[in-house]
């Protein structure tokens, strides 16, 4: 019963984390960069949103500004990586550290800024879960549609090829460095947007928000893609899968809390889930793959399957 009662909240929060996971998907899966800026940019989104709401800025406008602030953090990481030649993973860590100071500055030196959810018109909030699910769902759907259109444009295609094969991209006249910066800006913009929604949902922005967000994002991606790639391996289905991954993650999260697990251990749980998903393909390859039996008696049954590879 308690679980069913917690379900709408888990779905609403899962949708928001699913949106963040879409941002991580763009950097990790499309650009092939493990971008650690995310842990900072999600908090930037939350801080910007909370402070703007306090100043009387409408909720929708504060979301747009949060997106822009997140995009800026992505540009910083991108420039550290491309213009200054710092390895991408380090560039992300450096930006993340910078953002801790910047986020504190945005919050005016306080560790926490509360959002007055009673008097303000918010798009999502814990107190109205149905409305939260609808609003968050619409923002997620809108983001997916925009990304879907974007990644089939001339610019979008080269963004994909940049991550898929940088050598080929350069040979075809693609400015790989510019594309990395652009991709990281979009990715962190979406992450900050999710951070802003999260602040509205929880009714506060905390300087420690977003610790381990990248891990949650990766968990959502792995959970989602493990199913969606089997259904249809295309872009939109993957994005929907990633969002569903976020929701599943939060339902499991709530379930585990209800089972009596201390919330202190939940980050450990997230990390173990991601480690397992990362390890499974490797373990399969290393320990559970047997060489195929290629004696003539065994080959006859499957000798037609490799036609493509020998063409």
């Amino acid at each position: 019963m308690a679980f069913l009662y917690a379900l709408p909240g888990a779905i609403a929060e899962g949708l928001i984390w699913g949106l963040m996971a879409i941002g991580v998907y763009i950097s990790y899966k499309i650009l092939d960069i493990a971008d650690l800026t995310v842990d900072g940019s999600i908090c930037t989104g939350a801080c910007v949103c909370a402070v703007l709401l306090g100043l009387g800025v409408p909720a929708w406008l504060s979301l747009i500004i949060a997106f822009a602030a997140g995009a800026l953090t992505g540009i910083v990481t991108g420039l550290l990586h491309t213009a200054l030649g710092i390895p991408s993973i380090l560039a992300g860590i450096l930006t993340q550290l910078m953002l801790y100071s910047i986020n504190l500055a945005i919050l005016g030196g306080k560790a926490l800024v509360a959002i007055d959810s009673r008097s303000l018109e918010l798009l999502v909030n814990m107190s109205d879960r149905t409305r939260s699910i609808i609003s968050a769902g619409m923002i997620v759907a809108g983001t997916i549609v925009v990304l879907w259109l974007f990644f089939y444009t001339e610019v979008g295609l080269t963004l994909k090829s940049t991550g898929d094969n940088p050598d080929m991209s350069r040979a075809q006249g693609v400015n790989v460095n510019f594309n990395k910066v652009l991709g990281l800006a979009i990715a962190n913009g979406i992450v900050a947007l999710a951070g802003a929604l999260l602040a509205q949902y929880k009714g506060s922005a905390n300087i420690n928000d977003g610790k381990g967000a990248i891990v949650i994002g990766l968990a959502a991606i792995f959970i989602g893609l493990s199913v969606s790639l089997k259904i249809k391996p295309n872009f939109v289905v993957s994005l929907i899968g990633v969002v569903c991954g976020g929701i599943v993650y939060y339902i499991v999260y709530n379930f585990v809390i209800l089972l009596g697990m201390k919330t202190d251990y939940l980050k450990m749980l997230s990390a173990i889930i991601v480690a397992l998903f990362l390890a499974i393909p490797y373990l399969k390859e290393q320990y559970f793959t047997k060489p195929k039996d290629l004696r003539p008696s065994a080959v006859s049954s499957n000798h037609n399957t490799g036609g493509d590879a020998n063409a």
């Binding site: 295609l157 994909k160 090829s161 898929d164 094969n165 050598d167 080929m168 991209s169 040979a171």
Partner: peptide, 8 residues
């Protein structure tokens, strides 16, 4: 492998 983007 170098001249084409495999996932596209």
């Amino acid at each position: 492998m170098k001249g084409t983007a495999p996932d596209m």
